[in-house]
Design a protein around this nucleic acid. Sequence first.
RNA 1: CUCUCCGUAGCUCAGCUGGUAGAGCAAUUGACUCUUAAUCAAUGGGCCGCAGGUUCGAGCCCUGCCGGGGAGACCA
Length: 502
Amino acid sequence: MSEQELIRRNSLNELIRLGIDPFPPQTFEVNAKASEIKSGFPGDPSLFQQVSMAGRIMSRRIMGAASFTELQDESGRIQLYIKRDELCPGEDKTLYNTVFKKLLDIGDIIGITGYVFITQMGEITVHVQSLRLLSKSLRVLPIVKEKEDTVFDAYTDPEQRYRQRYVDLIVNPGVREVFVQRNKLVNSMRNYLNNKGYLEVETPVLQPLYGGAAARPFKTFHNTLEMTLYLRIANELYLKRLIVGGYDGVFEFSKDFRNEGMDRFHNPEFTQMELYVAYKDYEWMMSLVEEMVEKIAFDLHGTTVVQVGEHQIDFKRPWKRFTMYEVIHHFTGATIDGMDEESLTALALSLDVPIDKTMAKGKIIDQIFGEKCEPYLIQPTFITDYPIEMSPLAKKHRDKPGLVERFEAICNGKELCNAFSELNDPLDQRGRFESQMELGKRGDDESMVLDEDFLRALEFGMPPTAGLGIGIDRLSMIMTNSPSIQDVLFFPQMRPEKKISE
RNA sequence: CUCUCCGUAGCUCAGCUGGUAGAGCAAUUGACUCUUAAUCAAUGGGCCGCAGGUUCGAGCCCUGCCGGGGAGACCA
């Protein structure tokens, strides 16, 4: 244990010896937050003559018989002024001289009462009349200081920030704000969907067969049933069963799990919102996405323009729309309409796009798109009409053979959502599953598996349906200008620590 | 999985061609009743990520391992 931790434990014992419970059980009534005081006091000082606040001590400036301290609550920080003879009006000055000056530390959680005033230096400050320890802190916080927007000794080590997110949240106020924004985003989306009358549902995370996307799953085992189960990679097939069951619009915010690599755009568990609406097609769904995301941008920022890294991204409707073939032609000059696998392979090689033998026609096209087009699409753009081979759950295009009615929205060079007119022909669907199994035999370990129960559901009849999956983490990154997915997840996946120091 | 950078006090970081470990903040003791990166004086605090090797001698050089960042591969 470090020297400072030992000193804090001694202080803890000293407090107990003085009859002060370092972790008292009673509630502490709070009637004011730091930000409310700062914004409200100049307008009406009379409202803040008897405030009661709780929070964490973040700095201390002791000048003999008077001190300034910064208290941090959920809303922010405010300065406290503590005067010995007011905190301890009688003979006994222990509370100030010993408890406050010696035994309390940065990081301790206290409750105070007092009145608000403005110091000679012009800072809104709470003049403390009573002070109570609410929780003793035994570990030393990183000390971050700031003056005129310059931050000193910023707590920036990514490993520590993610492993000890609680410290990150205490010390870096901007981090708490990111997650508030993420919550606003989810609420905005949920409200939008609720207002349309769609039903929010929950479907299984543990699935006997994984489906609805192309990805490797996590595998687990149920002891009582003695069977292998998979953590869902998507919830698509369950939501479609509910459309078969008669709901006209269902959606789910779902944690999905994919056993793939990790980088700043991928975490093994991530959040998607999937939506299915009966009697609609992908054209209709494109309009919904535009409207919904535009509304989210506006709800979060009061404008449709969002600063993301070096780019200003404008979500104002309508977004640009290109077919997959158009956009590949635009960026490479190649016309791939009608090309067979052989000439696509040759094209990929000539463009320096890496491919391998497991890739069939659809995947090669996707690879060319991913290498040569996607990274350059910064403003929100719809890419439509994908090759059928890579879209086994999407409906055949109404008038373009070999393609499906599918779109993705690309933004800041990354996929934001994936959607299609859902395939509801059970015979076609069975054929698609079978060709997926062919791809599996060829070596594609992400090809889909055949789900007989899902096919049975389709055989009962599913209305024509539009479906959407939208990545909540990705959208949060864009909306909060966060360069890494780890910045929008409280607890991103990490290797375990060797040991946690005692 | 490959390449690359990084790991030194509670935190942020110095540490030169290898020669007994340094600063600021934080802490301790003292002074100070409007300070704000408070100030002033004094003091303590280190398995230099771990393990091996080279060397008279390693924080520094070499090898392996652990953890992290970035870039690639895979994916959303």
